[in-house]
Design a protein around this nucleic acid. Structure first.
Lengths: 99, 99
DNA sequence: CCAGGACATAGCAACGATGCTATACCAACC
DNA sequence: GGTTGGTATAGCATCGTTGCTATGTCCTGG
């Protein structure tokens, strides 16, 4: 081996030095956003298929997202927000403030 | 043609039906987030290289991001937030509220 | 029991962001 | 002029999300 190169090693180093907290946080964010969307969707009495159509996705993509199966990208969040008629807010806030 | 298949066509259709607003919004978000990070960074008197090191990226990645050259992913935003000692807030807000 | 709707999963193609190195540009300073 | 530090750009490999179709599950209603 050795041809699998230093990629793995470099990732390891980053993980070690900066912690895996970011990956964890992203996963948690994904989960919470998924729940939020599911809430908004159900509050409207929409099915995944309907939301999918409104936001230009497929039912399977919505399901995957709501389950927190992937960390969503901003464009997707924008589309979902637009479909649900809410605004997407992304911002940095001082360390202790809530939202 | 025809072998370039329906991919392009499908994208076109989505664009037409749901508008290109999402892409535009994402780009704007990217731009604003870039500016926000640059502000926070300069406020601390850090160089791009320093921020890069703290957040486990390279100087070039930071530059690209600050320039709004790409729409950042949530994991990256989390890392930057952690490095800058702020919290990342991502949420859906009712259509008229500000933040 | 069977049909229908809603949600979950699998598997694959393609896109786009990231990570990286290297280099160019541009100042300030010696 | 030359050097140093900070920032921008280029080009490429790799990863992860998305888009899609198809299928599986479960539940409800006939």
């Amino acid at each position: 081996m050795g041809e699998r190169s230093d990629w793995a090693a470099m990732r390891e180093r980053r993980m070690a030095e900066h912690g895996a907290a970011d990956a964890y946080d992203a996963a948690r964010l994904a989960f919470e956003l998924g729940r939020a969307v599911r809430d908004l969707r159900e509050r409207r009495g929409w099915s995944q298929a309907q939301l999918a159509k409104e936001s230009g996705m497929t039912q399977s993509a919505v399901a995957r997202f709501e389950a927190g199966g992937t960390v969503p990208t901003l464009p997707v969040l924008e589309r979902l927000a637009a479909a649900l008629n809410v605004s997407l807010s992304v911002s940095f806030v001082p360390r202790d403030a809530a939202a």
